[in-house]
Write a protein that binds this DNA or RNA. Structure first.
Lengths: 229, 229
DNA sequence: TTGGACAAGGTTGTATACAATCCTGTCGCC
DNA sequence: GGCGACAGGATTGTATACAACCTTGTCCAA
């Protein structure tokens, strides 16, 4: 129910979810090594289960699996970052339009709750948690559009965006998403598909603008790159 | 190189690829049970490796993993079928436009090769192989557009479409894709983005039209459904 | 001093063993 | 005869053991 994933829930899914949340909230930095033994000890399961969880996250591009080396929190390249937001630009605006046409009062309430949580987290200084709520806002819109397949893609893209923000966000940019989210919410509540689509498009462009995709990542992918040749 | 998947290749990837191909070519019918022991015996590996492959395919929605029950070739519902083609409608037309703007003569040649293979397979009566080539045509366009992230999504959607066709294709529909593909190829060769986008949109609509998404699946998901209450 | 070869330690890759769960056929009872 | 409980067999879920590989530190030779 919570996850929407088709089949049954196993311990591996549970662990994958916890790790995904930690990555999403920036508690695990890009590049962090995820040792199988260590994770097994933490969660009280064997490496078998941990490996299943890691494989899953690898497929979602949240971690990178390198053969005989282990698992690392992913470090999207600048190119990947651009691609992720181009994919979002393809999917989310028209999904927002569909959502506007279908949104019920209960849906609007759920969206408002995410905005509230985002505000609260930001006030409390939990930027990671605020980002998480912001991501849930986007996923909720996809869910309202009643397109599970697209929603799944968007969920994955949102998660990867969190990694991208961790690497490329330039602090001077405001990243005050709740403003844009509030405008979107209003459009959805008014069932104004045109405006919702346009707002989402602009919101995604703003997001990309708040990134610095010209310079090197703030936590560089390789020492060679970091130290300049 | 062949797969484009980021990291290294293991035996599990190999097996997953072979199974995916078999599903894509309709050599494995929707609903078929995939026993771990059996697959392990076939490919000469232990269940550990088989399980990794199955997990991967499960995430691509090509198979369904049911806890304590095993793995089965997926049987997309009518709803899922619609969603998959709606997602494709969101992604592929604009990707075709990008591809038209970037296509090189070598790209065109590769696309032509897929069309030729599709023809040859169809003439030889290998409908499954023809369908596979048709899918590769779509994936190749995504690759030409130079959007790896979107291309990955499209690849997954194309694979799922193959399952959908296996379940819902109505024989009376021609499904002569090579015609539409040839027109697309011409638009791409002419760098005519507008036409490519429009052609792809129409092609996808034709595809949906060739399906029967009103009736029950030809290989029904459950006996209860098949025998009517 | 510098360079490569080598060995020790640790981590991942795979196979196997055991436990838990499900399916199915049979038996007993109503 | 029909229905429910139960047991046997089979399959999956998980843990553990061993093999393969990478990393890294040390040693020796140039």
């Amino acid at each position: 129910m919570e996850n929407g994933h088709a089949t049954t829930h196993g311990p591996a899914e549970e662990i994958a979810g916890r790790l995904a949340l930690a990555i999403h909230e920036h508690r695990l930095a890009p590049g962090t090594k995820l040792s199988e033994d260590e994770l097994g000890a933490i969660y009280g399961v064997s490496r078998t289960v941990v490996r299943a969880a890691l494989q899953r996250l690898s497929h979602e591009r949240l971690i990178t699996l390198r053969r005989n080396r282990g698992a690392f929190v992913a470090q999207p390249t600048i190119r990947e970052a651009r691609e992720v937001f181009e994919a979002r630009a393809l999917l989310e605006p028209r999904t927002a339009r569909s959502a506007a046409e279908r949104a019920t009062p209960a849906d609007i309430a759920r969206l408002q709750a995410h905005i509230d949580e985002e505000h609260r987290a930001m006030s409390a200084g939990h930027a990671g948690l605020a980002l998480r709520q912001s991501g849930l806002f986007h996923q909720e819109i996809a869910r309202i559009a009643d397109q599970a397949t697209v929603a799944e893609f968007i969920g994955q893209l949102v998660a990867r965006s969190s990694l991208i923000i961790a690497l490329y966000w330039q602090r001077r940019a405001a990243l005050c998403e709740s403003h844009a989210h509030h405008a979107l919410l209003t459009a959805l509540a008014d069932h104004d598909g045109d405006r919702a689509e346009e707002l989402m498009k602009g919101h995604l462009l703003d997001l990309v603008s708040s990134l610095d995709l010209r310079s090197l990542p703030s936590a560089p992918r390789s020492l060679r790159e970091a130290l300049g040749a």
